[in-house]
Nucleic acid binder design. Structure first.
Length: 118
DNA sequence: AGCATGACGAACA
DNA sequence: GTGTTCGCCATGC
């Protein structure tokens, strides 16, 4: 089957991304690649970013907790106000310097490990 | 149909 | 550690 338009198929992918992001605990962050890998699209990390771009229409999706592998707030400019993303992360206890999360590795949350299915 | 871009990541020099 | 290149695949022109 798979006769459906891609626009409809990726909708499922978007929904999966949102679900993972919603499971990110407060004070933790993850990367696009980690989510992509968890969804089985490890080489499609850009698609995760694309999904996040649409996440603005979804409530309860803490997109600020999703950064790139460098811990850099690459998507800060997509929050309407560029300072919003950093403000939210600092509010959750993160320390951000030069648009980068300090102790990123220590705050990293890997869905393939913490959100694994028992 | 082809070309350029993108909230990325890994490999390589 | 930095800069470049390639892969990935959906979107826009």
């Amino acid at each position: 089957m798979s006769s459906k338009p891609l626009s409809e198929k990726n909708k499922d992918f978007f929904d999966l991304v949102y679900e993972v992001v919603k499971h990110i605990p407060e004070g933790r962050v993850t990367s696009y690649g980690a989510i992509a890998k968890y969804l089985g699209a490890a080489r499609s990390s850009r698609m995760v970013g694309w999904a996040m771009n649409a996440s603005h229409r979804m409530p309860d999706v803490p997109a600020q907790r999703v950064v790139n592998r460098n811990g850099l707030l690459t998507g800060k400019m997509h929050f309407g106000d560029p300072n919003e993303m950093q403000r939210l992360l600092e509010k959750e206890g993160h320390t951000i310097q030069n648009d980068q999360i300090m102790n990123f590795k220590d705050s990293f949350w890997d869905p393939s490990i913490e959100l694994r299915i028992d």
